[in-house]
Every structure is written in C-alpha cells, then in structure tokens.
Amino acid sequence: MTNIDRSAADKPLALRLLSMVSPAQTGLAPFIAAIMLLAVILLTIFSPQIATHDPLAMDPLMRLKPPSEAHLLGTDGYGRDLFSRMILGGRISLLIGICAAVVALGLGVLIGLVAGYFRLADAIIMRAMDALMAMPSILIAIGLVALNGPSIGSVIMAITIPEVPRVVRLVRSVVLTAREEPYVEAAMALGSSTPKILFQHLLPNTMAPMIVQGTYIIASAILTEALLSFLGAGISTEIPTWGNIMAEGRQYFRINPGIILWPGLLLTICVLSINLIGDAARDALDPRMKKRQA
C-alpha cells in the first residue's frame, strides 16, 4: 500500500498537475472554482467593454440609488455606477495579488534554499524570520503604507514582506528533508557541485509546495489589500479597488449596504475560488502535504 502512495508522489510535476484537471479524481469543487475564477478574471479584463458607465464619472443627482435598469447595482455616494466600478476594481486587486505572490515566492525560495543548505546562515536567517513572523502582518503593512505613501508599489511591498517568512520556512523544511534523501547523497558521491545539487536536485522539490503556497498568497494578498484600503491605509482612493469601494461604502452602510456587500461578494467568490484551486493543487501535487501552512 505504501508503495502505491509513494509512487503517486514520485511522478513528475506535470503528470500530477494533469490529474487535477480530471473531475473524476478530485470532485466537482475545483472545477466549479476554476470556472468562477475564469469568469471573474474575464469580467475584470474586459471591464472597459462590459462597463455600463464610466466608472469615474460622478453624478450628484444620482447619489446612493438602489439597483435599477440604468444602474445594475445602484450608485455610490458620488453617484458613480457601482457595477462598473466593481468590475474595474477587480483588476487592481488581482494584479496586486499576483505581484505579491511572485515577489514573496522569489525572495522566499532564494532565502529558504540558503537557509536549508548552509547551516551557518540558517541560524541567523531563521531568527530574523521569527522576528518578522512575530510582528502582526497587518501592523507592518499599515505601518509601511503610512510611511511610504499610498502607491501600488508600497502596498505590494507591505503585503509581500509579512508573507516572506512563511515561504522561507516552507522552502527550508522541504530542503532539509530533501537533502537527506539518498539520491542527493548519491549526487554528492557522483561529484556534483553544491550549486548543481541546490538548483537541480533540491529546487525542483520546492516547486509543488510553491505552486500551492503561491495560490494561497494570491488569495491572502487580495484580502489584505481590501483590508488596508478599508482601514484607510491602502492605495490612493482615486483608484477604484474592491477595498476602496467598500471603504467608501462604510459611511453609507445604513442607506445603501450594497456598496459594501456587492464588491465583498465578488471578492469572496474570487478568493474562495483561488483557495479551492490551491487545495486541489495541494491534493494533486502531494498527498502528504495535508496541513495548511499558517
């Protein structure tokens, strides 16, 4: 029995990812999630074509209107069309999520490889990561945005930095396990150099967990961006993002709760889909990696 399990985990990455696409293997949830996510992405990409109004055009006469034929989801406090703003807002949110994931993974993998392979560097790096983990991420993020100003770049940086230690820990643990594998020792015996062992034998081991972790980071980055904007420490309020739209809705919550609820719903669908796909990827890539890295 154990041999069967092991050979499933031994298959090359591409083969294991393929098994994720087959609904017979994983159930319907990831499938539906993928379709929902695709819909959200298409909606935001083609938002200029789909939008019924100019998302920035104010109309003092049409403030805080409920949904109607002219305004699918009603209007906000400046009379702007909520639907048009919402689908445009997704663009920035998704962009921030993807950028944060790429940067966090890049930094994390590099630092994690070094920490996992070189004992001396390990102690120092891991203490620094412990320190970063100890600081509540939202506090670092709002602190950084408050200091650096509300640009997209500083928001991405603020979201990325707290994610890095988790990636580092994950990569390090993968490297620590993998370097004990006989095939790595065999490679040493075969005269392979340290960089070759690091990048050709150990790095590929981190790919599967990184794909999974990457999806989780995208999801959590989208949430954090919304949170930052909601607290008034996000991207400049002139740019509609899901967080900004909802933040503006706070003061009108009793009059028109839709300003918070609709973008919130779309955001939840988007993040939920990404999380479900992450879970499916995890199950397909590594049956042993059951626990979510928290």
């Binding site: 999801a219 949430l223 919304a226 949170l227 909601f230 909802m246 919550f253 709760p257 918070i260 609820l261 919130g264 955001l267 939840t268 993040v271 939920l272 999380n275 479900l276 879970d279």
Partner: peptide, 18 residues
C-alpha cells in the same frame, strides 16, 4: 472552513451588523 478563509473579516462584521 474554506469560506472562513475567503471572506474579508470586515464583510462578516457588516453582515452580522446588518
């Protein structure tokens, strides 16, 4: 559990409040 991870905290708060 997945839903709990995916909804922004403030949205939960506002829905409960509402």
């Amino acid at each position: 559990s997945v839903l709990g991870f995916s909804v922004p905290v403030f949205l939960v708060g506002y829905v409960l409040l509402l």
